[in-house]
Design a protein around this nucleic acid. Structure first.
Length: 216
DNA sequence: ACATTAAGTGATT
DNA sequence: AATCACTTAATGT
């Protein structure tokens, strides 16, 4: 057993070792490679081939859908999450349908996709993990659809802020109106006005580059 | 002090 | 709810 493997084993210890069986951890340690990606770096873009999937150890990744230069944030990934790579994708073509941007410095163990299929049949804990993660992503997608279809911009904005607080575990968000507008595929002016409204309602407190969520 | 970037606002669609 | 056009405020150099 070499240093590299021990290092990975150590990294997996605080989260994944509790959900994966030992034999699987041994495999991951053998084939995975550890990587850190800095905030604001592009992890994956739409159309890019997926050669590896990440098991996220820390940090946050923002998952975005893009259509002719317009973008919409769907959800965030954090520790314990992975990109829900479809089974069909594993077998056939494996190009990403999402864009993933690192939101907070991320650490992850990357697993080559060609192993995923095999692990699905060989490791119970892997199967459970992938299916659960699938299920969870589906729910988040439905939430996205709901908010697009049924919610007004002010409600979407408030949900967005709440989601951010939940994922960053901090009610103080460092963000500009423009960035929020981009994430929601809205315009800066609209966000400014709605934020002021929320501010006046006492739900948030906002100053330049900052939003503090008071009511969540 | 000046330039740049972020935020606020009225009017219009 | 979006866009335009402009103002005002905050911040970096």
């Amino acid at each position: 057993m070499n240093n590299q493997e021990n290092f990975l084993r150590e990294k997996l210890n605080d989260y994944y070792s509790t959900i994966f069986e030992e034999r699987l951890i041994d495999e991951i340690v053998k084939v995975g490679h550890f990587e850190t990606i800095k905030s604001n770096k592009l992890m994956i873009d739409i159309g890019e081939e997926m050669t590896h999937i990440p098991l996220i150890l820390s940090g946050i990744v923002k998952i975005i859908r893009k259509e002719n230069e317009k973008e919409l944030v769907l959800y965030f990934l954090e520790k314990g999450d992975t990109v829900a790579l479809s089974f069909a994708n594993c077998i056939n073509r494996k190009r990403s349908i999402f864009k993933g941007v690192v939101e907070q410095d991320m650490e992850a163990v990357f697993i080559p996709v060609n192993l995923i299929d095999n692990w699905l049949v060989n490791y119970n804990s892997w199967r459970t993990y992938i299916i659960d993660s699938y299920h969870f992503r589906l729910i988040e997608m439905v939430e996205s659809i709901d908010s697009l279809a049924f919610m007004k911009m002010n409600e979407r904005l408030f949900k967005y802020l709440n989601d951010k607080v939940k994922i960053t575990k901090d009610i103080n968000l460092e963000i500009t109106h423009q960035e929020i507008a981009d994430d929601l595929n809205s315009s800066r002016v609209v966000i400014t006005r709605l934020l002021k409204q929320l501010h006046d309602e006492g739900k948030i407190y906002s100053t330049r580059n900052k939003v503090r969520v008071l009511d969540f």
